[in-house]
């Protein structure tokens, strides 16, 4: 899958948080329509990469570049990235007190529609639009009238991220451990949503610890991030190998190289 132009091109990215260098030179190119998986030990920097691509202000870029659709992604505000089609499903979704899920989703969708020069949806049109998306993830609208993520179970929060993915239809979707804490049915729902959304002009970066998800979503490329660097990349078979052997052999390999 080396054809197609690079939707996301990350080069030599070094990132620090709270004074500690976490990403120590990451290179990553994702082309249109590709699905990339990132695996790696706890604390290796996977979420840091995801957050920095979404524009979290707590992370300091020390060096390197990230181009999205040929533009300097790192120079864009988080909301500008989102409006340009970047979406991050959070590893730890945030609770928003007092704002209902449906109000939040509509505000987000309308922000994107404004950007695209489309008319905003009023509450009634939005509910109609939402209904099919809800059905796809097996929810009724009772979840929509609750404050965003407040009191949601771990699995419900993850499902809510997937609902947002389905509603916002991004061009680059970054899923940070969306499969963690999900039961089997929910996992299938996530996979189905992603598979349904797979398209020649839509790409995915999926952070996961488990081969399980990749049984349903076949990635084009699998990367291993260890200690702030991508130490190995390969095809779907790499995920199986990691499942069998763990990360230690790669860490040693990285030290040697």
């Amino acid at each position: 899958m080396k054809q197609g132009k690079g939707l996301l091109e990350v080069k030599g990215l070094r990132v620090a948080v709270a004074g500690n260098e976490i990403l120590k030179g990451v290179d990553l190119t994702i082309r249109d329509g590709e699905v990339h998986a990132i695996m790696g030990p706890n604390g290796s920097g996977k979420s840091t990469l995801a957050q920095v691509l979404a524009g979290h202000p707590a992370y300091t870029v020390l060096a390197g570049t990230a181009k999205y659709e040929g533009k300097d992604l790192l120079d864009m505000k988080p909301e500008e990235r989102a409006r340009a089609g970047v979406f991050l499903a959070f590893q730890y979704p945030v609770e928003i007190r007092g704002i209902t899920n449906s109000y939040f989703l509509r505000s987000a969708l309308n922000a994107l529609r404004r950007e695209r020069g489309e008319a905003e949806l009023d509450p009634i049109d939005f509910l109609q639009f939402l209904e099919q998306k809800l059905r796809a993830i097996g929810w009724d609208d009772s979840m929509m009238n609750r404050p965003v993520n407040e009191g949601f179970s771990g699995g419900e929060k993850k499902r809510n991220e997937i609902l947002q993915l389905a509603v916002l239809e991004p061009r680059l979707a970054i899923l940070d451990e969306t499969d963690s804490g999900l039961d089997i049915d929910a996992l299938k729902t996530v996979a189905e949503t992603v598979n349904k959304l797979r398209a020649p002009n839509r790409s995915f970066l999926i952070v996961t610890h488990y081969q399980r998800l990749l049984n349903y979503i076949t990635p084009d490329v699998v990367h291993v991030l260890a200690d702030g660097r991508i130490v190995k990349s390969g095809g779907p078979e790499l995920a199986h190998e990691l499942e069998a052997k763990g990360y230690d052999w790669l860490r040693d390999a990285a030290m040697v190289s």
């Binding site: 524009g55 909301e79 609770e95 928003i96 939040f104 987000a108 950007e115």
Partner: peptide
């Protein structure tokens, strides 16, 4: 700030996000 970033990451502008969170309160 986490809530603010969450809203912004969904395309909601900073000022609007602040207003939304305040209204949520």
């Amino acid at each position: 700030p986490r809530a603010l970033f969450y809203l912004r990451s969904r395309g909601i502008g900073e000022h609007e996000a602040q207003q939304l969170l305040t209204y949520g309160f």
